[in-house]
Design a protein around this nucleic acid. Sequence first.
DNA 1: GGGTAACTTGACATCATGTCAAGTGATGCG
DNA 2: CGCATCACTTGACATGATGTCAAGTTACCC
Lengths: 167, 167
Amino acid sequence: MSDIAKAAKISRQGLYLHFATRAELLVALTRWMDEVNDVDRRLAASRQARDGETRLAAFVEAWGNYIPMIHGVGRALMAMSDSDAEAAAAWAERMQAVRHGCAAAVAALKDQGVLRDGLSEERATDLFWTLMSVRNWEQLRQGCGWTQADYVVEMQRLARAALVELP
Amino acid sequence: MSDIAKAAKISRQGLYLHFATRAELLVALTRWMDEVNDVDRRLAASRQARDGETRLAAFVEAWGNYIPMIHGVGRALMAMSDSDAEAAAAWAERMQAVRHGCAAAVAALKDQGVLRDGLSEERATDLFWTLMSVRNWEQLRQGCGWTQADYVVEMQRLARAALVELP
DNA sequence: GGGTAACTTGACATCATGTCAAGTGATGCG
DNA sequence: CGCATCACTTGACATGATGTCAAGTTACCC
């Protein structure tokens, strides 16, 4: 909070006139970023795809390429989720939105009859959602040194292998 | 530290006579748990398997079933990794050991010629290691309400789908 | 009897978050 | 013009966790 106040050329206490808590500030920041980065437009491509598999790949690309933009604030929210229920709820809610995107892609696969045998839609969504987690992006990009392009391509392949019944 | 001291029927300051820092205590705890739970024996089964795919499944089972035992202390170490370099290093070292297990399973697949086409051993190891992360276990077990058995079976399938070239 | 090891007690430093009270300065309105 | 209001500042303070330090106490062994 001190650092942010300094950067905003405001006193530390002045910051609390705008954001009552650290969590509130971070949440406001994610909302602002969503506006600036136009998340809706990003996800439009994945919704437009007719083909289930194309849609899956498009969603991986759209969300996968959005992660780096919110990663900083996401990290902060995840870190304080242990001690701050407000932060935990805010982050969980955002991740729930991602889950809906995952569920939609899974539903498209199901509609087309290419969802892997013996995999319920819900189970598939859980799995896909987990694959697309910010933590996994972190580990592959920062822990393993993958490029962003590597990450996207490999996750597209992985998601397909995990969810699609191969002929 | 207060709570631990209380549980150990010792004064808070007395604890520091045994463990200089919180991180040191947690690291000692993981080492002690490894001994008590006999990690080596657990992993032996996965090393013995002749067949690459069997070995993969055995490793997923062994590590997957070990995660719940170290999850508490792992959580604590991960949480403080942001602010405490000592804790970060300790946890990273332990995860590196898991990575070696992953690499060995991948090597077995490669030896048998069933590693997916166009996937280098290193890339495959990165991927497998990421799939088997404690965070993913957390999300599936606690976030999605999967049972431990669900988790193991599904991860075995997923690992196979991700790494093995299907005939 | 004396020394040592393990532990206790109480006090204190630091650091981040958050709160509160008492100001200050610019802006706009009647 | 005068005055109220809003955004902000300053300084002080509470809380809670991690560590540190000095001065004991207790038990045990040689």
